[in-house]
Design a protein around this nucleic acid. Sequence first.
DNA 1: CAATTCCGTTCACCTGGGTTAATAAATCAG
DNA 2: CTGATTTATTAACCCAGGTGAACGGAATTG
Lengths: 190, 190
Amino acid sequence: MEALLNTIRHFIPLTEADAALIRQLFKIKQLSKGQYFVQEGYTCKQVGFIQQGLVRYFLNKDGQELTYEFGKEGEFICNYASFLDQSVSDESIQVLEDTSLLVISFDDLQTFYKQVPAGDRFGRLIVESIFVRAKKQLASLYSEPPEVRYRQFLQLYPDIQQRIPQYYISSYVGVKPPSLSRIRKRLAQS
Amino acid sequence: MEALLNTIRHFIPLTEADAALIRQLFKIKQLSKGQYFVQEGYTCKQVGFIQQGLVRYFLNKDGQELTYEFGKEGEFICNYASFLDQSVSDESIQVLEDTSLLVISFDDLQTFYKQVPAGDRFGRLIVESIFVRAKKQLASLYSEPPEVRYRQFLQLYPDIQQRIPQYYISSYVGVKPPSLSRIRKRLAQS
DNA sequence: CAATTCCGTTCACCTGGGTTAATAAATCAG
DNA sequence: CTGATTTATTAACCCAGGTGAACGGAATTG
């Protein structure tokens, strides 16, 4: 819970009363490997904060699962497109390891916005940060070849590389597993 | 000006007083072909609404201009990442034809938010819509080959295809000009 | 422990885009 | 209108990734 408070404090100041409210509104949620935080076809009803664990975001293209993002400890997870207007999600967030989350419901988040003075500001900053993140990924896809994207992935997630199957990484990088194998081989012998 | 009001009414209802305020806050701005709405290294100080004309968004990768988006009549243009926190922009928006805009400054937009009851809601909906747009483009880059992306571009911008150089389109599609030529050739003979 | 499933790598072959350069076509400026 | 510049196409060659399949090793399961 302290990690959550510190992360929020990274964006806005919190009084003790604010912190107490946050402790009330966020609930512990455990998901085991393979379970979904949001599933395609359902509505994203919560925002989560990862205390421990790992998730992947993916979308479905003609039956193919395209993993385009990961989430790790200390990060918020949510399909905001579905959450913000409580519409049906067209993508999924799946847990890759047993994961421990703190979650807040849509309604409780409105309470947070009402009662915490800088709450709206926090909400705006979070949405902005995920938007900037999406833009960065777009820029990377446009400008970097797969090999560079793989190296950047290793920098971004140095630890989790051995905790998950390679084919999730290959999807993130934008290639098929055999091609990632070749990239890894090229990098190893240089 | 009516086009702007109707576009806003597409998101929220407006009273006559709201409309009058909007008419005051938005100013006419003319840009001629080649000029910039925002330039890399400068701050985006306005949001624009295109009355007539065409723009491209691009980012700079080692001297290469990567065009990743277009804007046309009836659309808002802005580098929100730069505008929202008034920071230096890392990308540019350039006018591809003589273009007539209605623009609102950062400060005047705050006035709009304060005085129009549903103003904040409008702001949120706009930011959401550009976020969803970015996500769609990300999904398209991940899931569609260049040929499909080119066909989708033609559907999205049926008119402007002959008004701009092909190399902006090839960049948007994610390939080099010779490759777009080959794609066009393949499509023509099928 | 054995059997099965899953996963990463490798191979051979194919396809499509990158690159460079030449040419043709279109646009622009004087 | 003409010469100069810009832009689009084409050609030849190269290279990286896709595909389908086979293999071996790891992990799972009964």
